[in-house]
Structure formats: C-alpha cells, structure tokens
Simulated scan of single mutants.
Amino acid sequence: MERYNTMSGKKTESSDNIVLYPGLVKRLIEKGMEALKEKDAKKALTMFEQAEQYDAEPSQILFGKALCYVELGKLDDAVLLTDQMLRNDIGNYYDILQIHLSLLVQLGRYDEVVEMLDVVLAEDRLPAKHAESFYQLLHFSRQMVEDSPTYIKEPLSEELDLKETYDDINERDSLEQWHFLQQMRKHNNPADIRTLLSFVESESNDPALRSYALHMLTMHKVEKRVRIRKFDQEAEVIPVELNADEQQRFGNAVVEQLEARLAVENPSLFKMAEQLWWQFLYALYPFTPKPEQKDLWAGAVHVAVHESNGLPFDEEEIAGMYNCRVQQMLEKGEEIHFVETETFQGISGHSFR
C-alpha cells in the first residue's frame, strides 16, 4: 500500500496489509476538523496523523496538520509542511500559499515573502480573491526588509509580552502594534477582544492596522458594536456581520479599468497602480471610496501612480481615457496620496513601490 511521505514529498510502499473500514479516512479527517473547531489541536493532530497512515489523497490531511501546528504554536513545523505542499502541488496552490506567507511573516522571514510574491505577481495569474491580501503582505514585508532589518530574524512570538502590552498598545509604534496583533491571532480571550475593540476605535492608530484588527474581530465572530471613523467616514459596525465582498467587487472593477488602459502601455506601472489601489482600499476598510464610480477612481489611481513615481502625465488625456472630470479626478488622486502618507506612518522612508 502507498503512503505519502511529508518530508520527501513522495509516495512510499508499505508492507502492512491493512484492511480499511469503509469511509475510515474520511471520518478521521472529519473528527480532526471537529477537534480544531473545538480548539483541541492536540486531538486534531492525532486524528490527522492516523489518517496519514492510510492510502488517501494527502491534501486535506496535510492541510489539517498545518492548521494544528499553527494552533499549537509550532510555526516552523507548519512552514515546512506548507512548503512541501507548494513544492509538490498538493491542495489549492493559492490557498496554501496564503497560509505559508502568513507564517513567514509571523516568523519574521520577510525577505522570503518578498522573493516569493515577486515571482507570483510576475506570473500575472493571481486570482482576484487573493490580490488584496497578497499585495498587503508584499507591501509590509518590503518595508520590513528595507527599513527595519533588525526585525527580519526575530520571531514575533518572542518580541512582546502580551500581558504587558494590553494596556498600552495604542501608545506603541506601528511596528510593535503589528507584531502584537500577529501574536493575538493565536489567542481568543476577553482581554484580546477588549484590546482589539479599543485599537480599532482609536483614530490615532495606523488605518491599515486598524483594518487588520477589525478583520480579526470578524474572524472571532465578535457581536459587540464598534464605532469607526476613517478619513471623514464614520459608522458603527458589528464585526461578525461585516463582509468585504462589496469592497472587493468594487476594487476588482477599478483594476479592470486600469488594466484595460495601462497594462499594455506599461505593465510594470500597472502592477504598481494595482498595489497602490489595494493598499488604499485596505486602509479605508470597512468603508468604500466615495463616490463609487469605477472610472473616476481608476483615473485617480492612474494619476497617483504617475505622481508617486515622479513621472510626467497629461491630466486632460487621462481624464478623457476614463471619461471623468479633470478636477474631481485630481482631487481623488490627492486623496489616495493622503491615505498613502497616513498608512504605516510609524515606519520611516516607506515606499509602495
């Protein structure tokens, strides 16, 4: 009987003559997932390891094991496993890549994140649902590599004491806040939720980090109302009810407009524009840009990316390309630039390129 070796990534022969009960492997995987939902990662890992002993498609089993390693704080083991899955084309490539990159960030291996995403984005086959998060990871990791090399080799889990940080997280700089939030992903207790609610509501905190914290509250299915004000937009939201689909659809619509006009003319500049746009949207979350006119915002991004790179442009020509008014397009371009300067402001010399 064949078994999958997670270390070599190859099938190996077993001399054991094992008779499987019908549906045994499927049941073991289901029990493993159930244990994960119940926060019993040790039991879940046992279930997946038992399933791994039998002849079965390895993707679900290895994916489950990776989740267990994360819950148990064994991030190095999780990275090794997701790396093997990527190399051997096991499971959904982009879903596994998302987990793998997030783990690398938590381990402070930002240079590897940059290297991998540069290759992935150059292939120009990135699914729309992953675009925003991948550009976010690339942006942050580039900043860490360029601006704070001392952080690169330091695992996040060893840098901050959670108990000592709860009371003063809003007073910390953006780098420490980011590390703190990364650590909190592994926990779910009342102190975490109270801290995250306070962090999201504080207008002095970095807008992109507040978006990240809000996503965490949604992930934890928090039902408590939270008031958010960002860039002249204000609302009271319930995290568990939030859905980023609307913003994602609008974001994709703008990217399509940019791609139709900029990708052929200057592919590299289009990639920069796409990254700038997703960064802008992420900083705005849970709000969407106003007014919701895809042509207007595409023109604004077109202008903003030229300005960010110090490139000359004809504002009348660009406005004509997107069928929008020049003055309004320039105002929205300035808005994008303003949000850019307000994002990750605790990091000096940052760049979106």
Score class of each variant (00 low, 15 high):
residue 68 C to H: 07
residue 68 C to P: 06
residue 69 Y to S: 06
residue 69 Y to M: 13
residue 69 Y to V: 06
residue 70 V to N: 00
residue 70 V to I: 15
residue 71 E to G: 01
residue 72 L to I: 09
residue 73 G to Y: 09
residue 73 G to C: 12
residue 75 L to I: 11
residue 75 L to H: 05
residue 75 L to P: 00
residue 76 D to K: 12
residue 76 D to W: 00
residue 76 D to I: 03
residue 77 D to T: 01
residue 77 D to E: 15
residue 78 A to G: 13
residue 78 A to E: 04
residue 78 A to I: 07
residue 79 V to M: 06
residue 80 L to V: 03
residue 81 L to V: 08
residue 81 L to G: 06
residue 82 T to S: 14
residue 82 T to H: 09
residue 82 T to C: 14
residue 83 D to S: 14
residue 83 D to M: 10
residue 83 D to G: 05
residue 83 D to C: 05
residue 84 Q to K: 13
residue 85 M to L: 10
residue 85 M to G: 11
residue 86 L to F: 08
residue 87 R to P: 00
residue 87 R to G: 10
residue 88 N to A: 12
residue 89 D to W: 03
residue 90 I to P: 02
residue 90 I to L: 11
residue 90 I to G: 02
residue 90 I to Q: 04
residue 90 I to M: 09
residue 91 G to S: 09
residue 91 G to H: 10
residue 92 N to E: 12
residue 92 N to H: 12
residue 92 N to F: 05
residue 93 Y to V: 08
residue 93 Y to H: 15
residue 95 D to Q: 13
residue 96 I to F: 04
residue 97 L to Y: 04
residue 97 L to H: 07
residue 97 L to I: 09
residue 97 L to W: 08
residue 97 L to T: 05
residue 98 Q to N: 14
residue 98 Q to E: 12
residue 98 Q to P: 00
residue 100 H to T: 08
residue 101 L to Y: 02
residue 101 L to T: 05
residue 101 L to V: 13
residue 102 S to D: 11
residue 102 S to I: 01
residue 104 L to T: 00
residue 105 V to H: 04
residue 105 V to K: 06
residue 106 Q to N: 13
residue 107 L to T: 05
residue 107 L to D: 00
residue 107 L to E: 15
residue 107 L to P: 01
residue 108 G to E: 03
residue 108 G to L: 03
residue 108 G to M: 04
residue 109 R to H: 13
residue 109 R to P: 00
residue 110 Y to M: 08
residue 110 Y to V: 05
residue 111 D to C: 03
residue 111 D to P: 01
residue 113 V to G: 05
residue 114 V to T: 11
residue 114 V to S: 00
residue 115 E to T: 12
residue 115 E to N: 11
residue 115 E to H: 13
residue 117 L to N: 05
residue 117 L to A: 12
residue 118 D to R: 14
residue 119 V to N: 09
residue 120 V to N: 02
residue 120 V to E: 15
residue 122 A to S: 15
residue 122 A to K: 15
residue 122 A to T: 10
residue 123 E to Y: 08
residue 123 E to V: 05
residue 123 E to C: 04
residue 124 D to F: 04
residue 125 R to D: 15
residue 125 R to L: 13
residue 125 R to Q: 14
residue 126 L to F: 10
residue 127 P to H: 12
residue 127 P to L: 14
residue 127 P to D: 10
residue 127 P to M: 08
residue 128 A to L: 06
residue 128 A to C: 02
